[in-house]
Design a binder for these strands. Structure first.
Lengths: 159, 159
DNA sequence: ATGGCTGCAAAGTGTTTGCAGCGAT
DNA sequence: ATCGCTGCAAACACTTTGCAGCCAT
């Protein structure tokens, strides 16, 4: 597998290489495979799901390595860890500039990502009001699809 | 311990009694003790912390019972369960009208609760834009206390 | 060849559950 | 006297860690 097979994510691979170099760590077969799959998903995944997908493609990567790599990428600031419902965490690419939030349907679990500068401005104001310097935030909106048909369709696919 | 020792929370005790009755469940010594302590905190707690506090007062309630009671109260809609970022969940009284959000210091873990109607209005607008009916939301702001001294003080108390 | 990396399994978390006896109704 | 409730410990689900050998540098 070529090192940079994921189009549009050169910055990600570069960032990873830099981080590994800086920390005296090594690039490995497994890390490449994991990152490649992670990027090809380009949405949120949990460790288990990623593990399944990677190994479904014929590789044999241990779950522990998935976790270790996801933690490494989080440390490197390249991905972000979120916990939606409870129990498992999901990870997603940390797009450097545009932080996006989530709109989640409680029925079909479909997730839409959005961004709103007005809300972000208000958040800054709130943090300031309480004597804090804002670092990051998490905003999840939970609702129900108005398009019941599409919603039901997605619901059926759920395990 | 009298049944209704927590001032201002008559509605909570009543709601609990109603729920127990409706579901054919029983009021017990332990539940009373747990609820009493929970209400006297009137902030967010995790199961372990509540367990410690209850037993520090001379009671001998099992951790499993704490969990069972917290789940029961959640089912009853009297409290809400939230998961910030690490494993553990925290619980807080579900005030029927005013939903509040959280401002969390990443250093000392101190949590401030706030409420902002402007942001909530924007959230409604966003949900509508994406064809969804908003049910609820979660907004957590993560930052750093500007008052370093107070922050460090709280940090020391962390286990 | 060094020292980080991997898979495995074991250990850790936070939370839930099965069981036998206790206690509220 | 029911039948739910409790404490305990074992079971769980997700995640981390110790170890012996592997592999990138």
């Amino acid at each position: 597998m070529p090192k940079n097979e994921t189009p549009g994510f050169a910055w990600f691979w570069e960032g990873l290489d830099q981080y590994l170099e800086r920390m005296g760590l090594k690039q490995t077969q497994q890390r490449r495979v994991i990152v490649h799959h992670f990027l090809s998903i380009d949405s949120h995944v949990d460790a288990d799901e990623l593990h399944r997908q990677v190994n479904a493609e014929g590789h044999d990567v241990g779950l522990a390595t998935i976790y270790r790599t996801l933690n490494l990428l989080t440390e490197a600031g390249l991905i972000e860890q979120k916990s939606f419902q409870d129990g498992r965490s999901v990870f997603e690419v940390a797009h450097p500039d545009s932080h996006h939030d989530h709109l989640i349907c409680v029925e079909c679990r479909n997730v839409v990502e959005f961004e709103d500068h007005e809300i972000e401005a208000l958040q800054e104001a709130i943090a300031e009001k309480y004597g804090m310097e804002l670092k990051t935030h998490r905003l999840d909106l939970f609702g129900r699809c108005l398009d019941k048909e599409a919603c039901d369709g997605r619901k059926k696919i759920l395990t």
